[in-house]
């Protein structure tokens, strides 16, 4: 008996999943069975939305609802009784039942319905929250890079004005892309473009000690991915892999399609890192100076594509680092506008 009642209560939640207007009819039927009432009526603030069973002739539901909404408390007008639906502290509807039943029972069911409606509201909010989360996670442009870029442009202004102008244009392009507010996603081509401008600026800083190889299968260029996922990885390779290395450094960015997936790999031949440290960075720990960019990209990839599409890092001390992004070509909701 108890288990049966619990089951009914849970199923009532399923009925009301999409709110009172969408699920009112099955909910009213279930409530009528639960209360063993002759008839049940559910109303929101605009009036009745669902009814099950026949109300006694001559019952003035409109007046009853108005009265409930005015006082905000349960009312008994035999053969009808009514209880307000208070969702998250706000009056938002009314449950009316006809028949021989206790006021206490009706009040309990009304509170249950209100609870479920509250959950339904939270459920829809969750999707919005996920989107907002993504937006707050959106990669932040690093002050370190801003400073370095301006410094290197300043250094070139006298010695090589043409190069300085080119770099400034690169810098402007890069800023425009990172500050761009349209959407949370970009195409792989746009991501590469941003990475390219970033690397141009870094090359100037390294006095061209930096070799870059880009290998891209053209098929994946139009694929949409979360905004700024490639550039932070490249930035990490430059800052933590190559800056500390003596002599020439090499970065390769490659991308291919593998059936329904896109695989993008960023590899450097820098100083590498301790796998334990890499693991700590991805787990959300680790020293704050290291790999904030990587952890952020990893978190966003998992938020968008699910846990199995987080970053993979292959590294060891003095062996360079390879970071792998592996995501589906299509994901509902991921569109580069």
């Amino acid at each position: 008996m108890t288990i049966g009642a619990l089951r009914e209560a849970r199923l009532l939640g399923t009925d009301l999943r999409a709110g009172l207007r969408a699920g009112g009819a099955p909910a009213a039927r279930r409530i009528r069975r639960l209360l063993r009432a002759d008839a049940v009526l559910l109303a929101d603030l605009d009036g009745p939305v669902a009814r099950h069973g026949t109300l006694p002739a001559g019952s003035d539901t409109d007046a009853l609802l108005a009265e409930v909404y005015e006082h905000g408390t349960a009312l008994r007008r035999p053969p009808l009784c009514a209880a307000p639906l208070i969702v998250a502290g706000d009056l938002s509807g009314c449950l009316v039942a006809a028949g021989d039943l206790g006021e206490e029972d009706l009040g309990e069911v009304a509170r249950l319905v209100a609870e479920h409606l509250d959950h339904a509201g939270l459920r829809t909010a969750r999707v919005r929250i996920a989107a907002a989360d993504l937006r707050t996670l959106r990669a932040q442009i690093s002050p370190h890079f801003l400073h370095n870029a301006l410094a290197v442009i300043a250094a070139h202004i006298r010695s090589d004005p043409a190069r300085a102008r080119g770099l400034l244009t690169d810098f402007a392009d890069y800023l425009r892309y990172s500050f761009s507010t349209q959407g949370d996603y970009a195409t792989v081509a746009e991501e590469l473009q941003a990475t390219q401008t970033y690397l141009e600026l870094q090359r100037a800083r390294f006095d061209d000690r930096l070799d870059i190889t880009v290998r891209m299968a053209p098929e994946i260029l139009p694929v949409a991915v979360p905004f700024l996922v490639v550039q932070p990885i490249v930035e990490n390779a430059v800052r933590h892999g190559l800056e500390r290395k003596a002599g020439r450094g090499h970065i390769s960015v490659s991308g291919v399609g593998e059936g329904p997936f896109v695989v993008i790999e960023v590899e450097d031949d820098g100083v590498g890192m301790d796998p334990a440290l890499a693991r700590a960075v991805l787990a959300g720990g680790g020293p704050p100076a290291r790999g904030v960019g990587l952890a952020n990209v990893d978190q966003r990839l998992r938020a968008v594509y699910g846990p199995e599409h987080g970053l993979l890092i292959e590294t060891a001390p003095d062996s360079g680092t390879k970071v792998i992004i592996r995501v589906p070509r299509f994901m509902r909701g991921v569109v580069a506008e």
Binding site: A189, Q196, L199, T213, R215, P218, E219
Partner: peptide
């Protein structure tokens, strides 16, 4: 050759490499 290596040069344009 379809995924051939492309050295970075100032004229390297991703956009032009779209199919």
């Amino acid at each position: 050759y379809g995924v051939r290596a492309a050295r970075t040069t100032p004229d390297f344009l991703v956009a032009s490499r779209r199919v």
